[in-house]
């Protein structure tokens, strides 16, 4: 189902390859694409958002609670960057930030 941002991404892939049928190269999925094409589309989507900063080669080292805010330390190739925010989204692969924030979980 081409819902939401997934639909937007799929449309961008269709545009990139010229035709929806060109995405059906394999049989694991009907949406097959080169990772480099996906990277290009997501990078363009991110670049179109003026309030968004993307840090590459960066790692969240520490998350601490101070009052109603989170203090976040991010290690980058240019040194440590510190952020403070009332809200945080954990979109890591393994829920590492949720663990730093003290969330209970199952494995």
């Amino acid at each position: 189902m081409p819902g939401g941002i997934w639909g937007e991404f799929k449309n961008a892939l269709t545009y990139y390859y010229g035709d929806e049928s060109r995405l059906k190269t394999g049989w694991v999925s009907n949406v097959m694409f080169e990772p480099s094409a996906g990277n290009r589309i997501f990078s363009e989507m991110a670049a179109a958002e003026p309030r968004l900063t993307v840090l590459r080669n960066a790692r969240v080292e520490q998350v601490k609670r101070r009052g109603e805010r989170w203090l976040i330390s991010v290690r980058t190739t240019g040194g440590m960057i510190r952020y403070s925010s009332p809200i945080l989204i954990d979109a890591t692969e393994l829920g590492d930030i949720s663990k730093m924030c003290g969330v209970k979980y199952d494995v």
Binding site: W70, L88, I89, D90, A91, T92, S98, C101, V103
Partner: peptide
């Protein structure tokens, strides 16, 4: 086909955090 409820993204006990991806 199914809908995924919003409450699955919100931790039960920790405020100020929203969880995405597969977590």
């Amino acid at each position: 086909s199914f809908g995924l409820p919003l409450g699955t993204l919100i931790p039960e006990e920790v405020d100020g955090l929203i969880v995405a991806e597969k977590s």
